[in-house]
Write a protein that binds this DNA or RNA. Structure first.
Length: 607
DNA sequence: AGGCGATGTCATGGC
DNA sequence: GGGCCATGACATCGC
């Protein structure tokens, strides 16, 4: 901080004295004394400007050289890229695929008569490089400077830093000896040694620049290593180090071998550090968690690193907590710090009221509470929830309920002690408790809180009793697994009762939902049946009407036919029979008889 | 303020 | 006998 703020000021002599005093007292100011020395900083500034000017000059030279280089390139019509104009013989001389590409390139340009000679190149570099401006050089060699136009970037590809000894990094004033050290270390790398050996063999043939240019001698290894793939060695630093050039390098010399060693080396580190390993990250580090999640039928996607970490931080207990629970537990939850103490505080379970109590107590609404004894229905709980502090919501009622039903008290957590503890710990709840009966039972705010709390009432209870499982888990586990889970975790009486209640209520809730769903489906089905029956009835009525009319018609036809037949009958004198005296009747076998009506009635009356 | 639907819960019976 | 399920009945909430 001081080094940021102080330079803005022009320190007086007094200030400088103070700084000196502090310095002598070995008080770490976080900056050197130079920082506070204005004249020193002015000098530095001038130097810096000078460097910038020189750099600008260099850039221009480089631009010109690049133009010259491009002129020597040949446009490959197939790939649309520039490739160096290499003699066919040279292309055939390219090393095998496993030889680093740099070597072959170097061979190419050193022997190219049209290109700038290697000596010229080294000279140029020597002019450019010997700037002993240490920081620049150091950063250049290290590739640490992100500046794309830095002259030093020539030497090192951006991927190279891992190869460079780190001690060079922090040095503020590096000189050539330091650089030589760097080269020495660099040369100790076996791959580079191999490349260099091959390259040295090649270089001794074409020129004797090694002897003529000491600076180049020192720099040679790196130059040969990182020389641009292009035929013109004069192409200097920035282009070489730019990613575009590296890309060109690989494209222009596909036969030179697989991807360059540099790019191979450089690409690995980011992959490891940043690359797409985050997905595996979770699986790698949290197999137990995931496995537990699977086993619990509650998949916990490891979406984010932070999420994974968050889960893991809670996971070591191997407790099958779900994210929700973890969040809840971690959000300033008393569980975090407490253990059994909080269990004492919140001996929550209505089991004492419903399941584990005597039959009289099993229905708190109807018996225990109704007759004025100390029983609490859920509504009573909610009353207390809303009137007492949230953290003592259930402590109140459960301590009381445990007092009345002594079956659920663990040895250490006697109800009286719970009450005492609760009272001592939450003395401020007493006024609120007293106000329960004086204030209206429901206010809007209270109702709201109540509804919110109702959303996960059992979860809150579970939290209050530090149940280390999610309610979903408690409810949905098969009974064997559930029992196993209960046996694995040492839960006290109240916790066990609550877990059982949660399971019972949860299952019953689902059952009720299913029941209502079925009921609704039945109602819908019955309504559908009713509609179908109504339609059937209508259809039958219509049919009946049709049949009636048809019957009537047939009767009429029969009557007319009867009359017709009857009218055709004649007696012995040829007279027609009287319809009043005779009638036609048909027997079962189809035979038709003419029956006298009077006779018939007489017969009937006789019979 | 009361009606009504939705929902949770309890009690009970059956499997 | 315990667990689960189905269901009627009741309470509560929100509209």
């Amino acid at each position: 901080m001081m080094e940021i703020e102080l330079p803005k000021l022009t320190p007086s002599q007094q200030d400088m004295d103070m700084i000196d005093i502090l310095w002598k007292q070995d008080i770490d100011l976080g900056a050197g004394r130079e920082v506070f020395d204005f004249s020193y900083r002015q000098k530095e500034h001038e130097l810096q400007r000078q460097r910038e000017l020189e750099e600008e000059k260099r850039r221009q030279v480089l631009l010109e050289q690049e133009k010259a280089l491009l002129a020597q390139l040949q446009l490959d019509e197939e790939t649309g890229e520039f490739v160096p104009r290499l003699p066919p013989s040279r292309q055939q001389q390219q090393p095998p695929a496993d030889t680093p590409a740099e070597v072959s390139q170097n061979i190419g340009f050193t022997e190219d008569g049209d290109a700038m000679s290697f000596d010229e190149c080294m000279e140029l570099l020597a002019q450019t490089f010997p700037l002993v401006e240490a920081s620049e050089t150091a950063s250049t060699c290290l590739g640490a400077s992100p500046a794309p136009t830095g002259s030093g970037q020539l030497v090192m590809a951006p991927e190279q830093p891992p190869l460079i000894p780190t001690p060079m990094l922090p040095t503020a004033q590096k000189t050539w000896p330091d650089l030589d050290e760097a080269w020495t270390e660099l040369l100790s790398i076996p791959e580079l040694q191999q490349c260099l050996n091959m390259q040295m063999q090649e270089m001794t043939e074409p020129s004797d620049y090694l002897s003529t240019n000491p600076a180049a001698e020192a720099q040679d290894p790196s130059y040969s290593l990182f020389m641009p793939p292009l035929a013109d060695p004069a192409v200097t630093q920035p282009e070489v180090c730019s990613t575009e050039f590296i890309g060109n390098f690989e494209v222009n010399f596909p036969a030179a071998g697989p991807a360059s060693l540099l790019s191979q080396m450089s690409l690995k580190a980011p992959d490891m550090a940043v690359g797409g390993n985050t997905g595996e990250y979770c699986e790698m580090f949290y197999p137990d968690l995931l496995g537990t999640a699977k086993a619990n039928e509650t998949p916990q996607p490891c979406n984010t690193l932070s999420g994974g970490v968050c889960q893991v931080t809670e996971a070591p207990n191997n407790s099958p907590l779900k994210p929700l629970d973890l969040q809840e537990l971690s959000a300033g939850d008393p569980f975090k710090i407490g253990n059994s103490d909080m269990a004492v505080e919140f001996p929550d379970s209505d089991s004492g009221l419903s399941l584990d109590a005597s039959p009289n107590m099993s229905s708190p609404e109807k018996s225990a509470y109704g007759d004025g004894s100390l029983g609490f229905s859920d509504s009573d709980m909610d009353e207390m929830e809303s009137n007492l502090g949230s953290e003592s919501d259930y402590s109140e009622m459960f301590s009381i309920s445990l007092t009345t039903s002594n079956s659920s008290g663990s040895g250490a957590n006697t109800p009286t002690s719970q009450q005492q503890k609760r009272k001592s710990k939450h003395p401020k709840t007493e006024p609120a408790e007293a106000s329960v009966h004086s204030t209206p039972p429901f206010t809007k705010d209270k109702a709201k809180r109540r509804s919110e709390s109702r959303l996960s009432r059992d979860e809150q209870r579970a939290r209050a009793l530090q149940i280390p499982f999610s309610t979903d888990l408690i409810i949905n586990l098969p009974v064997d697994d559930f029992n196993e889970l209960m046996s694995k975790h040492q839960l006290n009486e109240a916790q066990l009762a609550l877990v059982r209640d949660i399971r019972r209520r949860g299952k019953n809730k689902v059952a009720a939902q299913n029941c209502r769903k079925r009921k609704m489906e039945n109602i819908v089905g019955l309504e559908y049946d009713l509609d179908s029956l109504k339609e059937e009835r209508e259809r039958l009525l219509r049919e009946k009407t049709e049949q009636s009319s048809s019957l009537r018609q047939m009767k009429q036809q029969l009557n007319s036919l009867y009359l017709e037949v009857f009218g055709m009958l004649r007696d012995e004198q040829g007279r027609p029979y009287s319809p009043a005296e005779y009638s036609l009747q048909q027997t079962s076998d189809g035979t038709v008889f003419l029956v006298p009506r009077v006779k018939k009635t007489l017969v009937k009356s006789d019979g």
